[in-house]
């Protein structure tokens, strides 16, 4: 580090110093609110700890068990991976679609934008009851509509093949939240580009592909990383509605982690699970970040 510093010219050195100053609040917060508790988790990952009595050091046993003798771990990983693959692309595309719709400068748009935001606002038990009620196989609104369309609706949360898509559907319904972020990103696209393209006679479809999408890639990149993290951390929906069932088809990673930590009081193993999850998400993020050089376009650079 020192060598780099010495090779810098005074102007660059000044800029770097200002950079570190700007990062100072984050660095302090990181040390206090993250390094300390996560450090504790790393240490606890090498112990057997039932929370109420002192931990016992067991070395790598937790990790050995996880990778060699714990079918639940693999099941949770499989289910979570599947969920990420299903929900991530859908959320990205639908969020963008909704945002483009909401970006129309039409009278009454404020009302529509607020309506689409509602699902993101209601949380917890009220939503879960509502979803179960909507997707009830015999009498639910969704299957009743399907029935009139001549389709026999599936068992949704209560069918092992449909439970995972049902949870995905629930999280996609909240897409109004991420549409807001796209909406903010859309505001950053200079109008003169469209005007120029229009004068050149570019079609609207072409303008979307040539102007909107490339200039929105920084926002897309943000959404991709955030949704990736969020999808891996899917918990509440399964915790409140399916409890991992039926037949462990929605036994998500964090559900397994929560059961281990707070129901079986196996905090040592749970800490190890948390660390492994972090490594998995981090690897995925590093990969996405690596590819981003090819497809994310920053006007500023």
């Amino acid at each position: 580090m020192l060598a780099t510093w010495r090779n810098m010219n005074p102007l660059a050195r000044r800029e770097a110093a200002e950079g570190y100053i700007s990062l100072l609040p984050w660095a302090i917060g990181f040390l206090v609110f993250t390094v300390m508790p996560v450090g504790a988790s790393i240490v606890l990952g090498f112990t057997r700890w039932n929370i109420v009595e002192p931990p016992v050091w067991i070395g790598l046993d937790n990790y050995v068990r996880m990778f060699t003798a714990d079918p639940m771990f693999w099941q949770a990983l499989k289910v979570t991976g599947l969920f990420v693959l299903i929900s991530l692309p859908l959320k990205l595309v639908l969020g963008l679609g909704l945002a483009l719709l909401l970006n129309l400068k039409l009278p009454g748009m404020n009302f529509f934008r607020t309506v689409f935001y509602i699902p993101a606002v209601i949380s917890g038990v009220a939503v879960s009851l509502m979803w179960m009620w909507l997707l009830q196989p015999d009498t639910g609104v969704v299957n009743t509509i399907l029935y009139y369309m001549g389709i026999e609706g599936p068992g949704w949360f209560w069918d092992r093949n449909w439970a995972l898509p049902s949870v995905a559907l629930m999280s996609i319904w909240k897409v109004g939240g991420s549409a807001i972020i796209y909406l903010a990103g859309l505001q950053n696209i200079p109008a003169h580009l469209y005007e120029a393209a229009e004068i050149d006679g570019a079609s609207r479809w072409r303008r979307f592909w040539r102007i909107t999408l490339p200039l929105l890639t920084p926002t897309l990149f943000f959404q991709l990383v955030i949704e990736l993290i969020d999808s891996f951390k899917i918990f509440t929906e399964a915790f409140v509605i399916t409890q991992g069932g039926p037949l462990r088809s929605t036994y998500f990673y964090l559900l397994y982690f929560y059961e281990t930590a707070f129901q079986n009081f196996n905090m040592g193993y749970a800490s190890a699970l948390a660390i492994v999850l972090m490594v998995i998400i981090l690897s995925a993020t590093v990969f996405v970040n690596y590819t981003s050089k090819r497809w994310v376009y920053y006007e500023a650079e």
Binding site: T4, P37, I229, A274, M278, L282, T285, N289
Partner: peptide
């Protein structure tokens, strides 16, 4: 701003979102 180790620090910052919140409670 340009400064050494920016990318690593940025990833470090992102990584704090990847750890389940419940583990930090105690």
């Amino acid at each position: 701003l340009r400064f050494p180790f920016k990318k690593v620090l940025f990833l470090l910052m992102l990584s704090t979102m990847m750890i389940p919140g419940q583990i930090k409670l105690i």
